[in-house]
Design a protein around this nucleic acid. Structure first.
Lengths: 150, 150
DNA sequence: GTATCTGCAAATTTTTTGCCAGTAG
DNA sequence: CTACTGGCAAAAAATTTGCAGATAC
């Protein structure tokens, strides 16, 4: 097992134990895949990818594992209008850009300055804000090109 | 029919015609309901509400009508991790605050200053930004109170 | 008159659940 | 050991679709 995977496994083990959950090979495989990609796969895509490394895993287990990871703060669940949920292994503050044509998700760095959030919170009347999610919509370079050519 | 409904119907009619679609009583009922509430109902909730006014409408038609409205720019489809999509009849720029406890959605006024968006777009490398969506997460006044009491 | 829309029921898609055997701690 | 997990298959939930009759224009 590569050095990097050992580190990843350790992170996972500690997060699981902190939440009173057990470390299992299936959860590790799901987490390793999520941590290794900058894509934002659906549960089914995770299943297909993981199955090629850990042949014995079921789709239901992938769903359960993903929810466990989300519960431990090691992944984020993203939902868009296209039917299935997507999962993101990055937990540092960042945003997403979603292509309206091909539905792929891209990472965007940076974060809003605190004063902007304060301004927004002013209008919330007793709503206690703990976080936020920002998503740009538009067309990725590939789809934008196709549009221009059409 | 109240004056306001006549205006609402006219808006709908024009938007539909601009998109080559027909004005129907079912679409009007769905749109009137969406425009009259500041809730963010699911398709099923729209169905239940509309059915009490227009007894003969089916859930499938509600789904079709909602998609038509979204296509005409008269409504927005919002998805969260809780299974079903929600629809928002407000089309002016505004944000949402979602309660992590009860899952209700609240409107938040205001919009980001353009320079913030420009900053974000810098990191997108060829992604052509057409819009954005910002969502605050936290606890609404009702659920926040319950938490404090517990 | 004709293309579009609706209602119905059936199909699809996505996600969750119950239950028994297996395994981590 | 004992409780938590995984696999399987079945169920549930959400949404979409095919088609015949109805309707807007």
């Amino acid at each position: 097992m590569p050095q990097q995977d050992q580190t990843t496994d350790l992170v996972l083990r500690e997060a699981l134990e902190a939440n009173g959950q057990r470390f299992t090979e299936q959860r590790a495989a799901v987490y390793r895949f999520l941590a290794s990609t900058d894509k934002h796969p659906t549960a089914d895509e995770v299943f297909l990818a993981v199955r090629s490394e850990v042949p014995v895993i079921s789709l239901a287990t992938v769903y359960k594992s993903l929810e466990t990871l989300v519960g431990c703060g090691l992944a984020m669940k993203l939902t868009y209008g296209d039917g299935s949920a997507r999962y993101d292994g990055r937990t540092d503050p960042h945003h997403h850009a979603r292509c309206l044509s091909c539905s792929r998700i891209f990472d965007v760095g940076g974060h809003l300055p605190p004063e902007e959030l304060d301004d927004l919170e002013e209008g919330t009347e007793g709503f206690q804000v703990t976080g936020y999610r920002l998503e740009l919509t538009g067309y990725c370079s590939r789809c934008g090109k196709e549009q221009a050519e059409a």
